[in-house]
Simulated assay, not measured.
Amino acid sequence: MHGVPSLHELTVSSARSAASELLGGDVRRWAHVQAVARKAAEAARALGPAESELLVLTAWLHDIGYAEPLMGTGFHSLDGAQWLRQQGHERVACLVAHHSCASFEAALRGLSEVMATYPDEGTSVRDLLTYCDMTTGPAGQAMTMDERLADVRKRYGSDGVVTHALQAAREELLRQLTAAERLLADAQPM
């Protein structure tokens, strides 16, 4: 894809640079991504060094599929995952595909077969990524999960596919956020 950065070596720095290049022109989305990445850097204390870096770089890339040059299916979680897979970063692709219970939205969009090609690892990294995303508003503001769900309903409408997907995913989102909050409570402060 012309004008799209490559991520041959994936580090926090290269992930931040790619996200900035692809999403930086969308002020609101970029504010959200930056806030999610900051929150992930704080939450990373609950993980070992390798997993900590993975969480933070994935936070930078979790919404990369909103970038116009990467749009294929029209569903950002899968579009970002497909680009990351093409770059050779399979685990990050799977985490991006499944952040914030995206499989529920994939099902409503008729994309379950595509989503199934990205295994959901169900790890603490996935739970913490969901926690960071679901407690950060669209402009980077801190929110509870309930506030975030209410904001989605306001922005997408009560009949929107995103609204329906998150309503269907509510119990699983709560499970992932509870698991993340337990990890954070048990972690030693930095």
Rank of each mutant, 00 (worst) to 15 (best):
residue 1 M to T: 12
residue 2 H to N: 15
residue 3 G to L: 01
residue 6 S to F: 10
residue 8 H to A: 14
residue 12 V to I: 12
residue 12 V to H: 02
residue 12 V to P: 01
residue 13 S to R: 13
residue 13 S to M: 13
residue 14 S to E: 08
residue 15 A to Y: 00
residue 17 S to A: 14
residue 20 S to I: 09
residue 25 G to S: 08
residue 25 G to F: 04
residue 27 V to H: 09
residue 31 A to N: 09
residue 31 A to M: 09
residue 33 V to G: 02
residue 33 V to I: 07
residue 34 Q to A: 10
residue 35 A to F: 07
residue 37 A to C: 07
residue 37 A to I: 02
residue 40 A to Y: 06
residue 40 A to G: 09
residue 40 A to C: 08
residue 42 E to Q: 15
residue 44 A to W: 04
residue 46 A to R: 01
residue 47 L to H: 05
residue 47 L to Y: 05
residue 49 P to C: 04
residue 51 E to D: 06
residue 51 E to Y: 03
residue 55 L to A: 00
residue 57 L to D: 07
residue 58 T to M: 02
residue 67 A to S: 02
residue 68 E to L: 14
residue 69 P to T: 09
residue 69 P to G: 12
residue 70 L to Y: 05
residue 73 T to L: 08
residue 77 S to K: 14
residue 79 D to E: 13
residue 79 D to H: 10
residue 80 G to D: 00
residue 80 G to T: 01
residue 81 A to D: 13
residue 83 W to A: 05
residue 83 W to I: 05
residue 84 L to N: 03
residue 86 Q to F: 06
residue 88 G to L: 12
residue 91 R to G: 06
residue 93 A to C: 10
residue 96 V to G: 02
residue 96 V to Y: 00
residue 99 H to P: 02
residue 103 S to H: 11
residue 104 F to Q: 00
residue 104 F to C: 03
residue 104 F to I: 06
residue 107 A to V: 07
residue 110 G to Q: 05
residue 113 E to K: 15
residue 114 V to M: 06
residue 115 M to W: 09
residue 119 P to R: 09
residue 126 R to K: 14
residue 131 Y to C: 01
residue 132 C to M: 08
residue 133 D to V: 13
residue 137 G to I: 08
residue 137 G to F: 05
residue 139 A to L: 07
residue 141 Q to W: 08
residue 142 A to M: 10
residue 150 A to Y: 11
residue 151 D to P: 07
residue 151 D to N: 10
residue 152 V to G: 09
residue 156 Y to G: 06
residue 156 Y to T: 14
residue 158 S to K: 11
residue 158 S to V: 11
residue 159 D to F: 13
residue 162 V to S: 01
residue 162 V to K: 06
residue 162 V to L: 08
residue 164 H to E: 15
residue 164 H to D: 11
residue 164 H to N: 10
residue 164 H to W: 09
residue 166 L to P: 10
residue 167 Q to D: 12
residue 169 A to L: 01
residue 171 E to N: 13
residue 172 E to C: 12
residue 173 L to Q: 10
residue 173 L to N: 04
residue 174 L to E: 12
residue 174 L to K: 13
residue 175 R to Y: 08
residue 176 Q to T: 10
residue 180 A to H: 02
residue 182 R to N: 12
residue 184 L to I: 14
residue 185 A to H: 11
residue 188 Q to S: 15
residue 190 M to K: 11
residue 190 M to F: 09
residue 190 M to Y: 09
